[in-house]
Write a protein that binds this DNA or RNA. Structure first.
Length: 105
DNA sequence: CGAGTGACCGCAA
DNA sequence: ATTGCGGCCACTC
C-alpha cells in the first residue's frame, strides 16, 4: 500500500481536529502548517465542503472576525464560540490572546 | 469532463 | 492610511 500523500485537506482537517477548546487558529496559519502558507483560501473551501463535524468554529480569519459562510452566519458562529467560553465582541474575538500554536503547545 | 467558486492572506501603488 | 489585485488547492455542479 502506498502511503497516502498528506494532502492539504487531510492536514487541515487533522489540525482543526486537534485545536483545544477555548483556543483559536487562523486559516492562513492552518494552511501554513499544512505546507501551503498561501492557501488560506483553500482552508476556507475545505471548511465549506469538508466535514461539518470539525470544530471550524475555532477557526477564524486573521483579523479575528467570524466567518460569513458559517452555518447560521456570523451569529451562529458567535454563539458556537460563546458556548466554548470565547466571548465574541461585535462578531470579533480577542484572537491575539486566544490564538493557539500547535508547536508551542 | 470542464469551469467556477470558496468561511483567506499578503503585498503594491 | 486605504484600496485593489493576485495566488493557492480542493470540491461541487
Amino acid at each position: 500500500m502506498n502511503e497516502p500523500l498528506p494532502t492539504l485537506r487531510e492536514e487541515v482537517v487533522a489540525i482543526v481536529k486537534i485545536i483545544p477548546e477555548g483556543r483559536l487558529m487562523t486559516y492562513g496559519q492552518i494552511a501554513a502548517l499544512a505546507g501551503h502558507p498561501r492557501a488560506a483560501r483553500i482552508v476556507g473551501g475545505i471548511a465549506h465542503y469538508g466535514d461539518p463535524k470539525l470544530p471550524w468554529q475555532r477557526v477564524v480569519n486573521k483579523k479575528g472576525y467570524l466567518a460569513n459562510g458559517y452555518p447560521g452566519g456570523r451569529v451562529g458562529h458567535q454563539q458556537a464560540l460563546a458556548s466554548e467560553g470565547i466571548e465574541a465582541i461585535d462578531f470579533r474575538v480577542p484572537i491575539e490572546r486566544l490564538i493557539w500554536w500547535p508547536s508551542k503547545s
